[in-house]
Design a protein around this nucleic acid. Sequence first.
RNA 1: GGGCCCCCUUCGACUAGAG
Length: 373
Amino acid sequence: RYLLNLLVEMYADCGSIDAATQVFFLIDRPNLFSWNILLTAYAQNGHLDRAAEIFARMPERNLVSLNAIISAYAQAGQIHKVLSLFTTMPQKDIISWNVLLKAYGEQGNAALAKEVFDKMPEWDLVSWNAMIAAYALCGHIGKARALLGRIPIRSVLSWSCIVQAFVQHSGNLGDAREMFFEMPEWDAASSTAIVTLLSQQCGLEQAQEVFNGMQHRNVTAWNAMLLVYIRCGHLEGAESVFHSMPRKNIVSWNSMIHFHVQNGNFESAKRMFLSVPEHDVFSCTDMITGFARVGLLKDAVKIFSEMPESNVVSWTAIAAAHAQLGYTVEAMDLFDRMAERDVVAWTMLLTTHAQAGKITEAKTLFDQMPERN
RNA sequence: GGGCCCCCUUCGACUAGAG
């Protein structure tokens, strides 16, 4: 049985949820471990609803199951759910507390994160790192630094967490770099984060320097470096990096497809898309955008309808494709059929109306928007 | 009698949509 448990987990880690589920059903009498593994598998692959279903259907649950489900809600940004479950939990361990702490931190709520942090019965490295990341994410540089100095367990990971948080918080580009250069040593994650940051500024030389200084360059690091050239619009550079990569994955291929779409080399994009071993929502969405730009709405629709899964982003892309090519009614209809809508989707619809001359409707939409930027 | 480890939970860095 525990070999099968391991197999379920293995498939889940590869993102093959269906395979994982099939193996689960092969297990003769699934034990609590098996159920927990399945629960986590769904949660970590973004299927919160299915995870909740599994949680409800489990024959028994333990602290691990509860931690897994609150973590899933935290990942989906449903803090209320996290909190209500957390408060009703019969026992909690440091992991439960860490989940709550991290949830507040990721929301950018340093005050509540601190409250949780102070209430916790004990702390480990994860707690310390989550707290400094929360500070960094809110731009509380001084507090982050102060806490960093007081962590009893010294680890690069803590520095790395701060750097990454600064990178995520777009207002703190300078701080991220400063922090990075103060680190006692560099790990792959912080270096990659800095390379990504430099890609946004077109800091080609500096990015290359950081990249060259890395001890071990994995695919993720290479992908980040590839993006630097892509974002700087440097064709030969991008192609040279792409071809010298020791390993490529779906992110590398998707980045190149994106590059070609953005630069109007749609034939190259198409060739790349067709020659690549697998497609996902990223590459399909890029192709939808690409087809729309060259006026081939039918092909865009074909990609959209054949996608393995779709999300807000791909729905917005296909709706925008219709709108840009003059099919405003269809675009609006697509908007209505979307399962969820974010600011970008709303803005898309808003401009569609505005450009169709429907100013009153546009104004109404603006007032209806749940959030604005 | 007690502790630790064993198959599960906190898990970090890279790609897509409107303006």
